[in-house]
Each structure stands twice: as C-alpha cells, then as structure tokens.
Nucleic acid binder design. Sequence first.
RNA 1: GUACUUGUAGCUCAAUCGGAUAGAGCAUCAGUUUGCGGAACUGAAGGUUCCCGGUUCGAUUCCGGGCAAGUACGCCA
Length: 593
Amino acid sequence: MASKKGITKRRWDTLGLKAIRPIIDNIEETTLARLRRHYDNDELDFSLQASHNLEFGDYSTTALLKNSKRHQIDMDELDSVLTEILKENEHITEVSTAPNKFINIRLSDQALLQIAQSLNSQENQIAQLGHIKSILIESPSVNPNKALHVGHLLNVLVAGSLNRILRATGIRTERDEIINDLGVPVCMTIWAIRNLTNGETLESSGLKPDQFVGKYYVLGKNAFKEDQEVEKAVRQIMVDLESCDEQTVKDWKSMIEMSIAGQIQTYNSYGEDGTWHRWYESDIYKDGKDIVIEQLEKGTVRKDETGALLSDINEEYGVRDAVLLRPDGTTLYHTQDIKLAKNKLEKYNVDMMMYVVDEEQIDHFQSLFSILDAFGIKELGTMYHFAYAKVLGGDGKSIKSRDGVDLTADQLLVEIQDRIRASSKEKGQDIDEASITKIALTALKYLYLSRDPFKAFRFDTLDLDEAVSFKGKSGTYCLYSYTRAKSLIAKFTEEFDGSISDSSALLDIERLLLLQNAKYNEVVTNAADTFTPSEIASYVYDLSKLFNRYYEEVKFSELEKAKLKTSLTIVSMVSETIKKSLELLGVEVVERM
RNA sequence: GUACUUGUAGCUCAAUCGGAUAGAGCAUCAGUUUGCGGAACUGAAGGUUCCCGGUUCGAUUCCGGGCAAGUACGCCA
C-alpha cells in the first residue's frame, strides 16, 4: 500500500549521499573496527559529529548512549575501552567523557590543517553517490503571457542553486521546462496584439519582448472580461489555431518566440544561461491517448457512464481519480503530463525527476506520481515535487492575483543596482558597473536563498532594505569578508606561499575557523540530500563571521614570519571555501567592493 | 468537510534531518577605532519552541489528539 504522505515531504532522504570527510572518516572507520573486534560484535555503532561549541571538544560521539543499552554492555566499561582506542589515534590529542556520557575529542593542529588542505585541493570529492545518480529538474515553466515577477524569481534561483549543489556532489543533473503555449490567455494576448497596438511594434515600443507581450496580455484580458464581442473573437482565435489557420499560427508563433526570448534575457541577467530544454504543450497536447487506452485492460483505467476514461487507482494509492480522456477523446492536463514524463525519461534516462512548481499544485503532482507509478512508467520515490511556498506581496496577498501591478524580476534588479551604486558613491568608492551588478545579485540571491522555501514569505520593501543594508546576515557581508581576505593576501604577497611549516600552536580562533571550514563537504552533501540551499547560506555566513573575528583579533603585520605564512595560508583556504560556497548559491565573487 | 504546509525572542528567520546551555540578524542599551579595508569587532537584555498526551537515556525535531494561519480539492491549465 503506497502512502500518499511523503511525496512532497520536505525532508528527502533517498538520494543516499554520504559526505566524504577527510581524516574524520578515517578515525570513524578505524575506531569502529577496533571496537567491534574488541567485543566481537558487528552490530556496534560509532560515529563522530562536529561539536557546536569548543567547550565540548572538536568532535563528539554518542556511542556510549547508543550502544550500551542496545547491546547490554556496561557503560563504564565501554567508556574506558572506547577512550583507550581513541587516545591511541594519532590525530587525537584529548579525549574526555562528559557527565551526560558524550565523549568529546580534540584533534591535533596538524590534523586540522591537513583536513583544510584536503578540502581545498583540486581532487576534493564531496560525497559518495547513492542509488540516485542523475536528476532532471523541471523549472521554472513560466507562462508565456507574462514577464517574470519577484515570485517566479524564487523558482529560478532555487532551481539554479539546487542544480549547482547537486552537481557539486557528483550527481548528473539535467534541466528542462514546459511552456504552456496554448489556452485562453495566450489567445487573449494574440487578440490584443492584433487589435490594440495602434501601430506600436516591439521595436517602436522599446520594451523587452516579454514585457511587450505582458503589456498586451493585460490589455487583452481586461477587454475579454468587459466585452462579450472580444470574448467571441478570442474563442475564434482558439478555433483558428486548432485548425492551423496560417495567419493565426504565424501570430501565435511570433508571440511565443518574443516571450521566450524575453525570458531568456531575464535569466541571463540573473546569471542563469536559460539554455535548458523546452517542451511545448502544443507539441504534446494530442498525445497520450494510447497510453491511457492501453491501461484500460490492465485495470488501472476505467470508463465511466459518460464514456470518459478515468484513472482507477484510488483504492491502492489513496488519491482522487482523475479524468484522463474526455468522451470525445480529447486529452487533459494529466494526460499531457503523463506523456511528457515518458518523453522526459526517453530523452534523459534519469534516476529521479524533480518538478520545481509552487505548492498550489501539490494535489496535482501527488495524483500524477501515483498514476505514473501505477502505469509502470516511474516508481514512487523517484519523483519529487519541490513544492515551494508562494512569495506574497507586501500586503500579504498572493502576487499572482494582482496582474500588472507587481515588480518584475527585471525592475527588481535595476532597483537593487541603483541602491548599491548610491551607497558605494556615498562611501566615496569607485566601482565598475560589472561589480555593481555582481554585488546586487549577491544581495538578492542571498535574500532569496537563505530562507526556507517551504515557508511563504512576504516580499516588500522592508526585505529589500535589509538585503542592501550590508549589515548582519547578508550576502554582501559574506562577499565583503572574501574581499577582505583577498586584500590581506595581496598586502603580504611576498610572505604568502601557501605553506603551513610553522610549528607553533594554533590560536583558538584559528581552530574555530578551521573546524567550520572542515564542515564544507558535510554541509554541501546535506544541502543536496535535503534540497536546501539555505544550509549553504547559513554555513557561509558563519564562516565569514569567524573570519571577520579572526581579522579583528590578529594583527598580521606583527606576526613572526613563519607564523604569518601559516596564518595567510589559513586565510587563503577559508577565502576559497567562502568563494566555493557562494558560487553554489549562484553568486560570483568580486575582488573589490 | 477532506488533504497538504506552517506555528520558535518585539520583528524576520536558524537549529547539520533524535543530542549537550534552542542560535543569528534587525530593533534597544553599553563598549572597541591614529587600521592588514569600520560594509568590521566585543558585550548586555530578550524564550513555558501554540496547547495536551505518547515513544526514549534525551523531543523544537518522531507519533496521536486539539487550536490557529495559508493553500488545494475531477472533465481549466
């Protein structure tokens, strides 16, 4: 009995990724092997997790609590055995058992530096793959009659970031989207462009192509609502399109092309190439009939009294059955999506299909996934609806319902750029336009990606002011840390050679910094496994914050030469981690700001 | 009505997916500055994690039941 629950659950744990942690994995393995041998019991468990507080050591284990009860081993005895094994490890300098039976270990300075070097090397492999080795991401599938607004942007940025994060772990990713190029709204736009332009053309309007389309969509929609004659005319366009009337097809194609071209421009300005594969509803809306009829004899589809064909899987899957073919043989949304899924699999042969579509369509996807499973096309658990919550306007209402009055993605970028430019002028800095754009994108992307996408958020000017204020938890703060690190290395360029020959003990702040740095593989793996870019955002902020503390605490110009070299190497490694992390969020770093 | 999602500091949000004393930012208050870039740093104050049960060494997290908010519910896409 398949469960309806979980198809769109937030926490996804079936990618089976396992982070590769240099040295830490090694300590885990050797300790576990010795422990099992000592007790001659292969069921014993041992794992290390990073401590959140230096007081509790660098890493800790709950092995005492987990094993003693489960395997009837005396806790004190296990404690002394485990402590002995850990103490003999070359990378560990201190082992202590807390009153609550956590065992805390402290790593040697050497081990910390080695870990940083492994993570920083070109060969750093982030994770071992599980059974999901390839994923197709469908996004953003914006309707072609509208310019992208600040709500669509969430989709674009999250999908872009997920794509990068998944790739970083070694998963093969593919991108695609479906363009709904049919339907009444499209025909309303065609009608408006035919009748309301007063001679205005794309060229003479000076608008981006998608904005041009969007403008006439709104005009067409209003006319459609108010005037029955217009409604008639729009219906006629639908009929003409269906019957492949030459002029109508030409107008339609030109409108769709304008729209896509404009959307791609927007993707480009946000640093996404937008070259992913596009499926068109008009290519597939007649298909899928045979798939449905084929299922009739398998019992997963039934015919009702009107002659319509419905899915018949309610009992097994607990989802409401859907109409798949009208009595006249025409298809519906579901039917097209079934066909599309089949096409996708034929083209990309991926282990998992992900749909980045807002939460309004949860029911649709639960139903679709169940049907695909029942039809033997793709198993449950290998399809995922990333059901992000809608972005709300400043008044707390859905943006979707208020056509034409909202900030478009293009306007938003310009607005942020203006603010960045103004504030850098205020500080008497002279920054080139390319950097202004990068800083603006940093602020914006961090704002969008640092939060949980499953919780609705209100988009209003308050958020904007915060994003560009450069204070506190922001992308610009992280970027600033990076440029600080870079300028530090540039200042001491003669002393910096990437070595760690110094033998004096690391400072506490250096240990903290290296420990945070050491979490990189784990954080990226977890972000991929649970589809949460915000984990990267939190991580890079914490790392940046530690770096700024380091920067304030240590006067580099007063350090001994050997110590300076090591410290600069640490700075360099940390700055590279900041850079890599920001890139996973789709942020390109600047060297100066 | 049914299903899904959400509920944590005054506000906006975290919490490595069962771990130690629930953390940040904003706002508030108090400090650091002759500097390697102050777009920085340090500190104070702020909590019955919506409520009630259960599971267990241990629950913001998992399970059950309430309460509140948002969203979706067959021939539209």
